[in-house]
Amino acid sequence: MQINEATVKKIAKLARIKVTDQETKSLEGELSSILSWVEQLNEVDTDDVEPLTSVVETTMKKREDVVTDGGYASRVTKNAPLSEDNFFVVPKVVE
């Protein structure tokens, strides 16, 4: 599988990572070679095989839908690069 420059730029945009032209070039080669290598999976017959969802057979645990934690907004926002009155501050999103 060969991926081109436009695809690298597109997935970088989806992943919200800015890439330089030089990075795009090397990523093109690296991702293409990894994708070619994983193509060998097509040799495996997976008709009638369910995808693995859990390695250990367990029933999904359930709990009461009640509040068990919280009430300390200042601790939650303590590590934020920018916060005000216990809110996270972000660049303007809505005009």
Partner: peptide
């Protein structure tokens, strides 16, 4: 804007191998 902040933060904050795997995963 906010997307520019995301993109710059993640470009500077992640190293090459991490970026490679995020992009591979996104693809």
């Amino acid at each position: 804007g906010i997307d520019g902040m995301y993109e710059n933060t993640r470009a500077e904050g992640f190293g090459d191998e991490v970026k490679r795997r995020i992009l591979m995963g996104t693809y």
